[in-house]
């Protein structure tokens, strides 16, 4: 049971959502955009967050889109992880979505919620980082389409009142050879000890990571090392490990040494699989 009251709004358009956010903000209600709501409800139950109003945006048509449009695969921020997995229009993203939380919760978590939530793993962002996806973001002032690396740095960098509307993924990436690997400490349903998404494009390996450090990331420096054909595979992986963007944490989920050990072996097998065309996802 949520131990405080808030107001509930279900706008039918982006304009309507942006307007009501501004009105509620000005009246001191501290509103939040609400899609799947799993994180908001569980945090509200513990009084970890408070709000005077939730704005349920997941039934706005643009947020429910999922289709190829021109050169892009367009996925609305209100599309659930299950819908993305079942449609399988972008297999790497579908696979990443199918390993967030458990299946029933995937019926509720939305793509936008996974990207904008406070839980640090945000595994659905990894395929988007690899494909140079664009995000459509709306506010009461305007709507803008921006490259993901301009608004995702460790987490989504949205201003108050900005609403993530859609993700646009360049079509040419959706059928690239890929590998998705998620390793957990114990059960299959758990936060990641380490999740790696990788794909091969123009004979170059791209890789993005979650669980390794305290934020999901893609590192161009690590990719340059992994793709340095003047070195042996073992040397390439060692070079990549030296270019991690932050210290690997020691915590209950796993020691830094253990995580690095797993990463080293995963990178070796992933690069080998992609370069030899012998891909086995797990």
């Amino acid at each position: 049971m949520i131990p405080f009251d808030f107001e509930y709004y279900r706008p039918q358009s982006i304009t309507n959502a942006a307007d009501i956010f501004q009105t509620l903000e000005e009246s001191g209600k501290n509103p939040v955009f609400y899609a799947g709501g799993t994180e908001i409800i569980s945090m509200a139950r513990m009084s970890s967050i408070t709000t005077g109003a939730v704005i349920d945006v997941k039934e706005i048509p643009e947020l429910k889109a999922m289709e190829f449009n021109g050169d892009d695969l367009v996925i609305g921020a209100g599309v659930t992880l299950t819908q993305i997995h079942e449609a399988n229009l972008f297999p790497l993203l579908a696979q990443a979505c199918a390993r967030v939380a458990d299946h029933t919760i995937q019926n509720k978590i939305t793509l936008g919620g996974n990207l904008c939530g406070t839980i640090i793993y945000r595994e659905a962002v990894l395929p988007l980082l690899l494909t140079n996806a664009y995000l459509v973001i709306a506010s009461v002032k305007n709507a803008r389409r921006v490259p993901i690396n301009e608004v995702f740095s460790k987490r989504m960098q949205l201003n108050r009142g900005e609403l993530l509307v859609q993700v646009h993924i360049p079509r040419n990436y959706v059928s690239c050879p890929y590998v998705h690997v998620k390793r957990t400490k114990e059960d299959k349903i758990h936060y990641p000890l380490l999740t790696v998404c990788a794909l091969l494009t123009d004979n170059q390996v791209r890789a993005a990571f979650s669980g390794l450090v305290n934020f999901p990331f893609r590192s161009v420096e690590m990719e340059e090392a992994l793709n340095d054909i003047n070195l042996t595979l073992e040397q390439r992986v060692e070079q990549a490990l030296n270019k991690l963007p932050a210290a690997v944490p020691d915590n209950l989920e796993g020691s830094a040494g253990y995580r690095t050990f797993i990463l080293k072996h995963l990178l070796t097998s992933i690069v080998n699989e992609l370069e030899t065309g012998n891909v086995t996802n797990s």
């Binding site: 509930y8 279900r10 299950t82 029933t104 019926n107 509720k108």
Partner: peptide, 24 residues
């Protein structure tokens, strides 16, 4: 908290943990 599944119901035919959904 969405972990155990004891509260599962169907919404439009899909299983949903009713502890993680607002009645509204």
């Amino acid at each position: 908290n969405g972990d155990c599944g004891a509260c599962t119901v169907l919404v439009d035919g899909w299983p949903v943990k009713s502890c993680l959904m607002l009645a509204a």
